[in-house]
Amino acid sequence: MHAVFRPPVNWRHRRFRYKLVVWRCLNCGAVHHYATSICRRCRSNRIDEDKLPDRARLITYTVVKNPPIAFEKQAPYIVGLVEFEDGTKLVAGITDCDPEELKPGTELERVVRKIAEDGESGLIVYGYKFRPAITRGR
């Protein structure tokens, strides 16, 4: 098996993975997680850097019981579909809680956590996850 994580990729995505820095279309509002010159929705070339909010709401979730490569030590773990106030949706690990504490609409906040470790390359990667909001305000 090839390496799942590679240092250059990890470096390239650092601002998205740690801070949810995105590229937003100034014409239609669509969000891109990669630097882009053309909007994936409307093909406008008016794109500017933006940052997704630190809070989001849970739409739905499930649990991964059979882990993929690099997540072997973590299973079972919760993953959820979250929505930001601008309508942008992401899937992400949901941490610091049990599934029973979650329901659609649960307010979440972004945290930076260890995502996984690639046994073969030895690389440990970090990125955003969400947990039920415990700090106040938006």
Binding site: H33, V64, N66, P68, A70, V91, A92
Partner: peptide
């Protein structure tokens, strides 16, 4: 970068 990286399997989606 959006899905697999987060440990979200296709079955989970």
């Amino acid at each position: 970068d959006l899905v697999g990286f987060q440990g979200v399997t296709e079955s989970a989606l």
